[in-house]
């Protein structure tokens, strides 16, 4: 008899506790999701002209040509270059060099756009080198991730 009584009391207490909890209306709910945007690295670079042309006249021993370029990158970037002097019909005479707008061979910038210039020069041409036209050289500028 006492077990029955205790059982009834326990059930009653559980009901008193449980009923208010179940009776709460749920009139609002929310759910969330993460949103991510991944922007991949992108860069571009281009000369405003296509040909470096140096003409030595009047017995000059050197000269230069300059072209501007425009670069852009959405990361921290470095501009460098490589140069090949005109090889045709024979390696061009003189001492050749190139430089960027800051008188060095590399420039860092970005993220963003960067206008600059490249100068190609030759010096030390002697009269004994003769005259003629040498072609086929190239000046390449490259934009890439800046070294960290």
């Amino acid at each position: 008899m006492s077990k029955v009584y205790v059982g009834c009391v326990v059930v009653a207490l559980l009901a008193l506790v449980a009923v208010p909890a179940m009776a709460t209306p749920v009139t609002e709910a929310e759910a969330s999701a993460d949103v991510s945007l991944t922007i991949e690295e992108y860069c571009e670079i281009a000369y405003s002209g296509t040909t470096f042309s140096i003409t030595l006249s009047g017995g000059a021993s050197g000269g230069s040509d300059n072209h501007s370029y425009s670069a852009g990158a959405n990361f921290s970037a470095e501009i460098t270059g490589s140069f090949t002097k005109p090889p045709t019909p024979s390696p061009a005479p003189g001492t050749w060099d190139w430089k960027l707008e800051n008188d060095t061979k590399s420039v860092t910038f970005g993220p963003g756009t960067h206008p600059g210039s490249v100068t190609v020069s030759v010096e030390g041409v002697e009269l004994g080198d003769g005259n003629g036209e040498w072609t086929g050289g190239d000046m390449t500028i490259t934009v890439q991730a800046a070294p960290t």
């Binding site: 991944t38 992108y42 993220p111």
Partner: peptide, 11 residues
């Protein structure tokens, strides 16, 4: 270029 490379998070 103002869209800088990277991964941006939100909710």
């Amino acid at each position: 270029p103002e869209d800088v490379a990277g991964t941006y998070m939100g909710t």
